[in-house]
Design a protein around this nucleic acid. Sequence first.
DNA 1: GATCCCATGTGAACGGCTTTTACTTGAACC
DNA 2: GGTTCAAGTAAAAGCCGTTCACATGGGATC
Lengths: 221, 221
Amino acid sequence: MGSSDNEWRRGRGYHHGNLRQVLLDAAGKLIEQHGPLGFSLAEAARLAGVSPAAPYRHFRDRDALLSEVARTGFERFAAQLETAWDNGRPTPLQAIENLGRAYLNFARNEPAAYAVMFQTVGENGKELQDMPAADHAFNVLQKATAELCKALPAAERPPSRLVSLHIWALAHGVATLLSESRGERRKVPVSPEEVLESGMLIYLKGLGVLGEGPAGGAGPA
Amino acid sequence: MGSSDNEWRRGRGYHHGNLRQVLLDAAGKLIEQHGPLGFSLAEAARLAGVSPAAPYRHFRDRDALLSEVARTGFERFAAQLETAWDNGRPTPLQAIENLGRAYLNFARNEPAAYAVMFQTVGENGKELQDMPAADHAFNVLQKATAELCKALPAAERPPSRLVSLHIWALAHGVATLLSESRGERRKVPVSPEEVLESGMLIYLKGLGVLGEGPAGGAGPA
DNA sequence: GATCCCATGTGAACGGCTTTTACTTGAACC
DNA sequence: GGTTCAAGTAAAAGCCGTTCACATGGGATC
């Protein structure tokens, strides 16, 4: 709340200030609290102190607002993945593990955005795929796997797109199945990070990208 | 009454017949059509030819009906996985590939159930985990990975629960990210089955379970 | 500085949804 | 035949999304 300067009116001279952004923030809070299904446009409006019809001056409908939440989410997601990858430094292996951790961190820190990105949007195949921000995020992963695959002799080098799909699927699966709200946590007293990292290590060993470091990633003792 | 024992009236002497099951079927159809969010109890009742209040004689509320859809879905899921695994025949490797295909087949053939199982249920961490049927499905996977891991020297054998989580996450990720309604399909002209199978092969090779068969699972040409 | 314009917000309304309440019905049992 | 109780109905309250006509006031124009 520290924005004591006149941020609340910077966009242009609105009536409310910058209702558009306020609604997006309110949506984030509500989705975090009640899940992306429990989100209601009316409640967001109430939380922003405007009438239920006001949001329609800024978003075509409820789905459009949710789409925007997803879009900005993908942008932050891509940026964080890119930062974590850091152009493969210090080493591609270390970097891709950082990338995996960044993936899970995003899913944990922004559950609302993550849920909307991969759940609400594209619910019944409506209108998700034309989202350049999502492509950007995936491209970071693809860039990383391509760099990794360069260490392989071309003969046994699988298409790097396939490799990035494997890693994406693994990361998404871990993030989804072991998210904090899910019950598997009790029976699986292991952190998502541990699961993803060990899984990636085994996978990368199978790929041939891995001298022979921590064999299996779960060596006992 | 001549106990003609007609099926449409078998449960007990209902008014409608077997409304409970009819509602569950209607829910399945509607969820397939409009996605699990677009499902409406009222529409299901209309489709079953009863008043909007009738479902409340059979389900506590909307979520209870959805939970039941998820529960029966998990039962079929577990059964199909078990059949595919077939106690590790003909060979554990072949069997676990069958299991992967069965996973994707279920997600494709019963998108409504799959979506509800992993999406609607447990939306905001409400009440999903006490679902024995879900445990049963996971146990099939765990049994399979345990069998697989037996081929490994105990020294480098990771906890089989961890291995089953890896495979589950990979399968779930592939099923989710590459489902037919998703747009990635265009850019990734490769079937989910191919992605999952190649991913599993690479992973299993990394595990050490894999003589040296199809290296990488994506040998060019 | 007065005036006009149009983006932005309001209020009221429609239809649909979920859920509860009081009621009706009719099959099963004695 | 009469009673009972599960199963269905009707009506209503309260929420939501969405649309419409209308109000308002900040900024551009003269």
